[in-house]
Design a protein around this nucleic acid. Structure first.
Length: 514
RNA sequence: GGUGAGGUAGCCAAGUGGUUAGGCAACGGUUUGCAAAACCGUUAUACGCGGGUUCGAAUCCCGUCCUCACCUCCA
């Protein structure tokens, strides 16, 4: 295993802990994936992104990683929604699973190595529940011929250690649903028995389906084993979901150490200072963002705040009733900027025929130093509990230096500078790529990105490239005739379309802004 | 009530004892027919409030106010 100075904030100990991989030759990361009863919103995007950054960083540092992100495709909410739709529950969840996969893949999140589904792990779940019953940690309750299984919370001494809750305090809020038969209000369902006509799978206790929580214990055990390295999820999962996972897994394997070595929880996406949530109705789906903005802009936006802090997602209604996302637009312009910078640097670097240069004049040495230090600085930022805002600041500095170099070359006709700058540009371009790659940014060719965003922006405004080109041609004619008043009037029209006009010695180009 | 997170310049956001983080906006400049983009400069000796520790505090300690979240499904 490689050396690392990575430190992660562990929710269990509530402290920054040095990352120490378990000695199995493979780092196990488990991300609590979505319950697929509806399309995913921006909060889900954030929850998928945090482990993606961790996994990318670990891999870049040389660790073999097994990344598991589950799909909860069996759940009461799925059952309810499917009934409303008059749809088969697994058909609904399969549909939503595909949408989720598309959404997070477009976000630039590496696909998990294993994406286990509850419906395909019923056997593991039944086995784990049986084990808990054998150990006296769970019990079967029968009512009207239907048998369910509950976890006996008081039998697990460590209950509450993750969420810092005491059993006595929990009891106040706990309650028993009308149809529940558990012995203690704190107990939770491992297996929900149902009638033969209901939605379920056979089990030693009769037909039924798993309760929420048990699937993650069973599937992580199956794919990563007990005591794996990192478990991630949103902060709202700390209680009761993750607390219950600990109770289940450690209750089933006593004496085998902690269920998980490090717990990582990401903060919420807020709308008007409130958590974005289905129940509040204030959510914006990932695909709603993609309708207006590039997926990479959403990624950049989410990375601009440390994963544990809250991030404010703004929406703004324009006079024409269109809804825009100002924060995402700002992020998209930054992504534009990075791609443009990369394209500029590569254009300059193309004429590099010098090979490696050991001695650079002072005017250029600083750029080489910055290029050399970029990756170490980025690694240090990510080592510090995945500090992506600092990582983005390193990227910003590299990009700024790259543009500065390109500007310098455009203006000065210094022979030495012209001769050596392509080499320096290639160094900066490489640094920019290396550094953005670690965050999963700039993963396409600049030209591809530009084409994709320009097409989207044209479509959003109901414009065509031909219409813009016509205006540009009219303006070029006016300029050639030195009719600057007319040329400027046309430019005002173009600006109203959000088109940015760029006159160069070789002609006029344009782009549509985000 | 319990538990946790957070309050940093016009806005966003890093920073946990001592050198300008970074970004956005605005304004000034380089450039340009004029612009835009890019770059430079200014806005910025900012850290919720009140005490304390220290040569020195956004950072540590005590108190206090405010916001949000979890305690019921939630990423």
């Amino acid at each position: 295993m490689p050396e690392t100075s990575l430190k992660l904030f562990d929710s269990l100990t509530a402290q920054l802990q040095p990352f120490l991989a378990r000695p199995t030759g493979e780092v196990g990361v488990y991300c609590c994936g979505p319950t697929v009863y509806d399309v995913a919103h921006v909060g889900h995007a954030r929850a998928a992104l945090a482990p993606d950054i961790l996994v990318r960083h670990l891999r870049a540092e040389g660790y073999p990683v097994k990344y598991v992100r589950n799909i909860t495709d069996v759940d009461d909410k799925i059952l309810k929604r499917a009934a409303e739709n008059q749809e088969d529950p697994l058909a609904l969840s399969a549909r939503m699973t595909v949408l989720y996969q598309q959404d997070v893949h477009a976000l630039g999140c590496a696909p998990p190595d294993v994406e286990p589904k509850v419906s395909e792990h019923i056997g593991d779940i039944v086995q784990l529940i049986s084990r808990l019953i054998e150990r006296g940690a769970a019990y079967v309750v029968e009512e009207q011929g239907v048998r369910s299984v509950y976890y006996s919370v008081r039998a697990f001494p460590g209950y509450g250690k993750l969420s810092k809750r005491k059993i006595e305090e929990l009891q106040v809020g706990a309650r028993i649903e009308a149809n529940e038969t558990k012995r203690d209000p704190l107990d939770f369902a491992l297996w929900k028995g149902c009638a033969e006509t209901g939605w379920g799978w056979p089990s030693p206790w009769g037909k039924g389906r798993p309760g929420w929580h048990i699937e993650c214990s069973a599937m992580s055990e199956r794919h990563l084993g007990h005591g794996f390295d990192v478990h991630t999820g949103g902060m709202d999962l700390i209680f009761p979901h993750h607390e219950n996972e600990i109770a289940q897994s450690e209750g089933a394997f006593p004496g085998e150490g902690p269920f998980v070595r490090t717990w990582i929880h990401n903060g919420f996406v807020n709308v008007d200072k409130e958590k974005m949530a289905k129940s509040l109705g204030n959510f914006v789906t990932i695909r709603q963002v993609y309708e207006r903005n590039d997926p990479e802009a959403l990624r950049y936006f989410l990375l601009s705040v440390h994963y544990r802090g809250p991030i404010a997602f703004e929406t703004e209604k324009l006079p024409d009733e269109r809804v825009i996302f100002p924060g995402i637009i700002e992020a998209e312009r930054r992504v534009d900027y990075l791609y443009q910078t990369l394209a500029r640097l590569r254009a300059l670097a193309e004429s590099d025929k010098t090979g490696t240069i050991s001695t650079l004049p002072p005017s250029l040495a600083g750029y080489a130093t910055l290029a050399n230090e970029a990756v170490p600085r980025l690694r240090a930022a990510l080592d510090d509990d995945l500090n992506t805002p600092v990582a983005l600041s390193v990227i910003a500095e590299v990009a700024k230096a790259g543009n500065e170099l390109c500007d310098l070359v455009q203006r000065k006709k210094d022979t030495l500078l012209l001769k050596l700058s392509p080499y320096v540009a290639s160094r900066l371009a490489k640094a920019l790529v290396d550094v953005t790659e670690r965050l999963g940014l700039l993963q396409t060719m600049p030209a591809t990105y530009t084409q994709r965003t320009q097409l989207q922006r044209l479509a959003l405004r109901g414009l065509t490239a031909a219409a813009v080109d016509q205006k540009i041609a009219d303006r070029a004619a006016a300029r050639a005739a030195k009719d600057f008043a007319r040329a400027d009037a046309i430019r005002v029209e173009l600006t109203a379309w959000n088109v940015e006009v760029f006159d160069t010695p070789t002609g006029t180009s344009w782009r549509l802004l985000a």
